[in-house]
Amino acid sequence: MSYLHVIDKDGCKGCGLCVIVCPKKVLEISEQVNTKGYFPAYQARPEDCIHCAMCCTMCPDVAITITEVAEEKDAPESTEETDG
């Protein structure tokens, strides 16, 4: 089972609270401004992310989501599903 951590780039207001609560120091504030004129947070070191959702819990704008995604190796079997 693997997880997909997504920060809604344009929903984030760059407040930085997620950055300070991340236990693995994964997040940082981006240099690219978003459509609202904020500098959103982003995963600077995604490989260190343990998907603990502390950032999601802290985010005042519910801009961070974590979803479950099937492992790559599961993928082929699912695509062979017959359409019966």
């Binding site: 997880y3 959702a53 819990t57 979803t67």
Partner: peptide
């Protein structure tokens, strides 16, 4: 083990 997190 990670957690999922969705908008309610």
């Amino acid at each position: 083990m990670g957690k999922t997190f969705q908008k309610p």
